[in-house]
Nucleic acid binder design. Structure first.
Length: 567
RNA sequence: CGGGGCGUAGCGUAGCUUGGUAGCGCGCUUGGUUCGGGACCAAGAGGUCGUGGGUUCAAAUCCCACCGCCCCGACCA
């Protein structure tokens, strides 16, 4: 490609809309432009990168035995009703109407469609295992799109769906995808970590997320340097400091005027450490109040609560709801002698004794509470948010917390959809079973931006070779057609092109600094600088983006470039 | 949806408090000088000041409503 023929609108200044570095670079390097919030136009250079990533994904999916299909983005709402997600996915479903006023949904994902397909085609165990994938545009009515391509209303996703006859076989399919994902991100030049992921209401199943460590990430992962345990904080467990278990006697009510928080009670004249308090939270779970008990110094992890409750339909109670449930206002809440409400307690509190908690009477608390003796706990679970520095639950080494961008997710689904759609097969004995399903997603557009977020310097993007829009940028400093510099550039351009190298020739009549800055902003892996000065010495300049500049002999230039590209 | 910020030329912005002919930088056009790290000089083009209403002799500026964008939070199948 000749630069003068291309469309690469680079910007010296950053548009005000961009906050994070990768978003700024996407715009400045002329890769994308915004149409409106959450919707972006991929410009030629950005599209080239996207296609590269897609191709890597495609190759690795094929290698793992998955079969490419293309499903409609537009879907009938009936299948969403059939799976039950018409309601549960309300928040993210885009809907449209046709001329006859019939409603349609724009697919945020395709479990319903692929399972409908399988329901019609699957009959025998001999047809399994199968794994179908597609690379396609998805639509999600994001509550708040942000950070450019990171969270958009419309984005390119690779989604795959595996079907197996047994749990063991499904596990193999899962592992194949897990391994393929590791290769995909590696080939994209991304450092990722695979972390255990929360599975929401489908608790107990298996899931991993592929995370790109980045401070701008919307997720947080907990990980252990020693044993390599890694999990999304929504899922992560850790060991808490020990809880007091020696009883101090019978509960004793005492006045605590004005005390409204755990923190208030730690201060004089009370001086009760947070770890010796029981925090009582009231949630409205499917319209009914439920008490949640945490140790005073711990925080509730709502993702874990979802797992324990088996529903995501809950919210913190309003003040009036709390008063009507416990006859006291927040600040003096407790679970002692509460018999009529479900009480979920964090397992850290197991055996806790001599604790302080609200008395369910405004301005009063109870001390010397032994949870086993004084509180009726309905269910014990791990409900605690893991914190940095807490011992790893596997090996005891302090956990570290790291923000990260989720670029891939592998998920063992089980039979939720295959049962709903009757996607069943007959086994060797003629018994009918629903196929066991897995689903696997990669945010392709998000991956593009994640690469930029992870690979840049003060001058711009540093594209990993495999996903670079062009591998080589030829930069002649004199573009007069009859100049020796330009003639050499043309020769190299032709020679590299003939070898299948993706090369862009910066034939713009611009000053050297301008052209250098542009090529660095965009981040081509290799730049070959051709100028009168070096040519006089029989040399050209080979510059590796983010690396050193080396003079090479003109007659060796082609070989040296090819050599660099092999790496 | 709650909280905060912003909307002035393609981009970045000043002007708004205290109403009075809309300014600067980048980019763009033309000419000239330059030419190894985002050049310089000169001359130009380019603006419904987000939209609608109100106050006023007069509104970018004050008031009301709406729209859009960005950030934080809720949400995240």
């Amino acid at each position: 490609m000749r630069w003068s023929q291309a469309f690469i609108p680079t910007l010296k200044e950053t548009p005000a809309e961009a906050e994070i570095l990768s978003h700024k670079l996407l715009l400045r390097a002329g890769l994308v432009r915004k149409l409106t919030g959450g919707l972006y136009i991929l410009l030629p250079l950005g599209l080239r990168v996207l296609r590269k990533i897609e191709q890597i994904v495609r190759e690795e999916m094929n290698r793992a035995g998955a079969l490419e299909v293309l499903m409609p983005a537009l879907q009938p709402p009936e299948i969403w009703q059939q799976s039950g997600r018409y309601q549960t996915a309300q928040g993210v479903l885009f809907k449209a109407r046709d001329h006859a006023k019939k409603e349609w949904v724009l697919g945020p994902t395709h479990e319903e469609v692929i399972t409908t397909l399988l329901a019609g085609e699957l009959s025998s165990y001999r047809q399994l295992p199968k794994n179908f994938y597609q690379i396609q545009t998805k639509f999600r009515d994001e509550i708040r799109p942000r950070f450019g391509l990171m969270r958009a209303k419309e984005f390119v996703m690779k989604d795959a769906y595996s079907f197996d006859t047994t749990d063991e076989a499904a596990q193999i399919s899962y592992q194949k995808m897990y391994d393929a994902y590791a290769r995909i991100f590696q080939r994209c030049g991304l450092k990722t970590m695979a972390v255990e992921a929360d599975t929401g209401v489908m608790a107990g199943k298996f899931s991993h997320e592929f995370m790109v460590p980045a401070e701008t990430g919307e997720n947080e992962v907990a990980w252990c340097e020693q044993c390599h345990y890694a999990a999304n904080v929504e899922k992560a467990s850790s060991r808490a400091t020990p809880t007091e278990t020696a009883s101090g006697g019978n509960p004793e009510k005492f006045a605590t005027p004005g005390v409204a928080t755990i923190d208030d009670l730690t201060r004089p004249p009370f001086g009760v450490p947070a770890c010796r308090q029981i925090k009582t939270l009231v949630y409205i779970v499917e319209n009914k109040p439920v008490l949640i008990l945490m140790r005073g110094d711990h925080q509730l992890n709502e993702a874990k609560l979802t797992g324990t409750l088996g529903t995501a339909t809950f919210r913190p109670a309003e003040a009036e709801e709390i008063v009507s449930a416990l006859k006291a206002r927040p600040g003096s809440l407790g679970a002692v002698d509460v018999k009529e409400l479900p009480v979920h307690a964090d397992e850290t509190l197991h055996g806790a004794a001599n604790m302080t908690t609200g008395a369910n009477e405004d301005g009063f608390h109870l001390r010397q509470v032994d949870i086993g003796r004084d509180i009726t706990v309905t269910k014990w679970s791990d409900l605690r948010l893991a914190r940095a520095g807490e011992p790893c639950s596997k090996c005891g080494h302090p956990l570290r917390l790291q923000r990260a961008i989720e670029v891939g997710h592998v998920f063992k689904l089980g039979t939720k959809y295959t049962e709903a759609f009757n996607a069943c097969f007959l086994d060797e004995a003629g018994q009918k079973h629903p196929a066991i399903m897995g689903c696997y997603g990669i945010g392709v557009t998000r991956t593009l931006q994640a690469v930029i977020e992870q690979s840049n310097d003060k001058d711009g993007i540093i594209w990993p070779l495999n996903v670079a829009p062009y591998a080589v940028c030829l930069t002649p400093l004199n573009v007069a057609p009859d100049s020796a510099v330009m003639k050499l550039a043309e020769d190299l351009y032709a020679a590299l092109s003939a070898r299948g190298v993706e090369v862009i020739l910066d034939d713009r009549d611009e000053r050297p600094g301008f052209k250098f800055k542009d090529s660095e902003l965009i981040g081509f892996p290799i730049r070959v600088g051709l100028g009168e000065k070096s040519l006089a010495k029989g040399e050209v300049e080979l510059k590796v983006r983010g690396g050193a500049l080396t003079p090479v002999k003109v007659e060796e230039a082609l070989e040296k470039v090819l050599e660099r590209l092999k790496l």
